[in-house]
Computed example of a mutant assay.
Amino acid sequence: MNSDQTCPCGSKKTYKECCGIAHGNIMDVKTAEQLMRSRYTAFTLANGEYLNLSHHSKTRPQTRSERRDIIRWAKSVKWIGLEVIQSIKGKEEDIEGIVEFKAHFTERGRPNMIHEKSTFIKENGHWVYDTAL
């Protein structure tokens, strides 16, 4: 992705000004919502390394096969857009937060959506995805 293109997460900023910051250094992620947006963008880019890094160590996919399957799926769909519904806590000073979102995509030519409330916590000083509620 060209760093001057609009970020896929829907922030209306360039990738470089938005999720590119998180993808460059996860320690620069300030909020749970910012991490969730950066994970959505990582899915659109099939950036498995970042998806793994931004996933809580206790709940992340453990096997190479699981991680490959996630990337294979991310590449197989056409990502359309992200809609953030609400964020609860998850600010820079918090240690946990919840973000509800809808990730729109087409799979095999059919519209689809992931509607999820996700929990995020700080691990090793930075935000990580924990689980879906």
Rank of each mutant, 00 (worst) to 15 (best):
W73N: 08
H126R: 12
K117G: 03
L82R: 03
F101Y: 12
C18M: 15
H23L: 03
K58M: 13
S54Q: 02
Q62R: 11
A46L: 10
S11Y: 03
N47K: 07
H115A: 15
A32I: 09
L82H: 05
Q86D: 13
N52F: 04
L133W: 06
T6M: 13
T106V: 13
H126F: 15
Q62Y: 01
A103P: 11
E92K: 09
P61C: 01
K12Y: 01
T119P: 00
L82C: 08
D4P: 00
W73P: 05
T63D: 02
E66D: 14
E17Y: 00
A42V: 05
R108D: 15
N124V: 07
A32M: 06
D4Q: 15
V84P: 02
E17C: 10
I121M: 12
R108C: 14
K117H: 02
E100K: 12
C19E: 03
Y129P: 05
F101G: 03
W127L: 15
K78G: 01
I88Q: 01
I121F: 01
V128C: 09
I95T: 13
T31C: 13
P111C: 00
Y40W: 06
I121H: 06
E66T: 03
P61G: 11
M27L: 14
C7G: 07
G125P: 08
I21M: 13
T14R: 09
R39P: 03
I71M: 12
T131Y: 06
S38Q: 08
R60Y: 00
C19M: 11
A22R: 05
S65D: 10
I80C: 10
R60D: 00
E66A: 12
G48L: 09
K13N: 12
N47V: 05
G97D: 04
T106G: 01
E49Q: 14
F120D: 02
Y50G: 04
N52Q: 10
F105C: 05
G10D: 10
L35F: 07
S118F: 08
K122P: 01
R60P: 05
Y15F: 15
I98Y: 07
G10E: 12
L133F: 03
T31A: 14
K117C: 10
Y15I: 15
R60N: 12
R37D: 05
T119D: 00
N25I: 06
W73I: 05
E66R: 06
K122G: 04
R67Q: 15
T44W: 02
M27N: 13
V128Q: 04
K16E: 13
C9E: 03
Y129V: 10
Q5L: 14
T59D: 01
